[in-house]
Amino acid sequence: MATVNTYLNFNGNTEEAFNFYKSVFGGEFLTVQRFKDSPGCEGMKISDQEKLMHIALPIGGNILMGTDITEPMPPATFGTGISLSVDASSEEEAYKLFNDLAEGGKATMPLDKMFWGALFGMLTDKFGIQWMVNYDYNI
């Protein structure tokens, strides 16, 4: 079966965001590529050449990837259209992930036991990315 990975666009702070995600989830970056190191980007503004063209962080069996949006592309907008869902392997891990991701952000639904047999909560992190943290008690 195909694998679905997540690719996030940021307005110049991808490196900061991914260092934050690395501090939450652990692991090492698979790739960190700047525009200045990529063919065809020589004509970009010098300030844009330092930005990230691609970064990849493995999380579980998937890869969280990202890029900085540069001109002439339209800026990234954040909203309610997408949430990243994280399934924790324990109740303790769910609380840690939720609290770490919420640091500097906003819990929109506090982590709590739900009627469907899970510990579940939602938040928006300090970079505007929405997350759902879940731990199923019945698995």
Rank of each mutant, 00 (worst) to 15 (best):
A2K: 13
T3R: 13
Y7S: 13
F10I: 09
E15N: 12
E15Y: 08
A17P: 01
N19T: 10
F20P: 08
Y21M: 13
S23E: 12
G26M: 09
G27R: 01
G27C: 11
E28Q: 13
E28T: 13
F29W: 01
L30M: 10
V32S: 12
V32K: 12
V32M: 13
Q33R: 15
K36V: 02
K36R: 14
D37E: 11
D37Q: 14
S38V: 10
E50P: 01
M53G: 11
I55V: 15
A56E: 14
A56Y: 09
I59N: 08
G60K: 07
G60E: 09
I63C: 08
I63H: 06
L64W: 04
G66L: 09
G66W: 06
I69T: 15
I69C: 12
E71V: 06
P74T: 12
T77F: 11
I82N: 14
S83T: 14
L84E: 14
D87V: 04
A88C: 02
A88T: 02
E93A: 02
E93M: 03
E93S: 01
A94N: 06
A94C: 06
Y95E: 10
Y95C: 05
Y95I: 02
K96E: 06
F98S: 06
F98L: 02
D100G: 03
D100C: 08
A102T: 05
E103N: 11
E103A: 12
E103F: 10
E103S: 12
A107C: 14
A107I: 11
M109L: 15
L111C: 02
K113T: 04
M114N: 11
M114E: 09
F115V: 03
F115P: 03
F115N: 04
A118P: 03
A118F: 00
L119W: 02
L123C: 05
T124K: 10
F127A: 07
I129K: 06
W131N: 03
M132A: 10
M132P: 00
V133R: 00
V133S: 00
V133H: 04
Y135E: 02
Y137T: 03
I139M: 08
